[in-house]
Design a binder for these strands. Structure first.
Lengths: 216, 216
DNA sequence: GATCAGATGTTAACACTGTTAACTTACAAT
DNA sequence: ATTGTAAGTTAACAGTGTTAACATCTGATC
């Protein structure tokens, strides 16, 4: 009886002004759901039905906002890329204020993000799970690259932002390789985040002589 | 009628000495099927049922040889790792014979493998798709690392083969980052394999001054 | 303010996936 | 020859992405 009452009340509310039929922010909420599930259980555990259930919405509703699962993951990867770029920007500005090495700071921010949010970092580069030709995705990768290019002299061959000088590519490769090996590889597995970061710093410091002659 | 005849003949053959009931090399054949499907359609397209169908065997038969899909992919990743290690070894020996830079040769072999067999390279490091704690898998990664460690002075802290000196880690990171950015990233996408390889060589050459002081 | 189109959600179904249990066949050692 | 075991089959299970057909809400228009 009590359940019947609450149910009728619920039904009444449903049909009144406070109806929940339309969620309102489903596209964003789905991204948040991917966020949470990926953080807790990894990217491979992300499921459209699981995301929908978490939000309290039917499985098919996702397709009103995303063409398919891959599109959702593409937007998620783009979001993650921009989060990484944000923290790189912050680190860069902080370093510039305090007169530290900006390039080093940006590189460390890259590795730190991968260590703190491994599922996000993986999602960014999972070519077969996203539409890597998506304009927004590509723009986000370029933004990321632009922070790594800061501090390098711009050469003539460097005017296309898609293109990288050997020095820039060395920086990106090293930092990206470190992040990948820490996250998915067999390197320093028994060490904690702080130890990995100081190891990363040691590795990156070796590059300073290479970059010294090329800095602006 | 004709179909009936051929069918009965088939049935007869089945029941005679030439029975195909037992495949014989199913474990290996499944690996080959993963190989082919991954090469053609990518790792994400690899399916137990698809592999079984390609071999002409029932879907469930795979579970007599592998505990689950992840186990199969773990063995496949291990196999891929050893293929990469093989080609690194070959390149190293060739360089040593002709008096070239062995480390450079090993690094280039690493990148070349990733470019030629991207699906294999991806499978090696897909943490969430394999059992990365598997002993054989770990042994294969160590073998791989050992070729990158060749040519470096062994320090005291270096006696544990699991551990890497900063120089060794720099080499691995750079080469791994290059490979990943080429395969899954937005770097040099419009360029062909040869161009990418020469770009890789340019990047790696920058490291020689760093390593010069530390070589054996 | 009622009407009506379009955006947004639901339900029910589809084919496909990994996985298991129960059964069958072939081989190999006694 | 018998028989136990390894290696295959079939049939089912729950869970996945995706779609079509339907329902509901919102907001612009008369």
């Amino acid at each position: 009886m009590l359940t019947a009452i609450t149910f009728s009340a619920k039904t009444k509310r449903m049909k009144k002004s406070n109806s929940h039929y339309h969620h309102g922010h489903l596209a964003e909420s789905l991204l948040d759901a991917v966020d949470e599930i990926a953080t807790q259980f990894g990217i491979e555990a992300v499921t459209l039905r699981g995301c929908a259930k978490r939000i309290g919405v039917s499985p098919a509703s996702a397709f009103r906002h995303y063409a398919d699962k891959r599109s959702l993951l593409t937007v998620f990867a783009t979001r993650a890329l921009n989060q990484l770029a944000d923290s790189m920007e912050t680190s860069m500005l902080q370093a510039q204020e305090s007169g530290e090495d900006a390039l080093q700071a940006v590189c460390m921010a890259y590795v730190r993000f991968a260590l703190i949010k491994p599922a996000f970092f993986r999602a960014m580069w999972r070519e077969e799970m996203i539409y890597s030709g998506d304009p927004d995705y590509l723009a986000a990768t370029q933004r990321l690259a632009s922070y790594l290019q800061e501090g390098f002299v711009k050469t003539i061959a460097d005017e296309d932002p898609c293109d990288f000088s050997p020095q820039e590519l060395l920086a990106w490769s090293t930092v990206h390789g470190l992040a990948c090996l820490f996250v998915d590889g067999p390197v320093a597995q028994e060490q904690n985040t702080e130890e990995k970061l100081s190891l990363a710093k040691t590795v990156l410091t070796q590059l300073t002589p290479v970059f010294a002659q090329q800095r602006s």
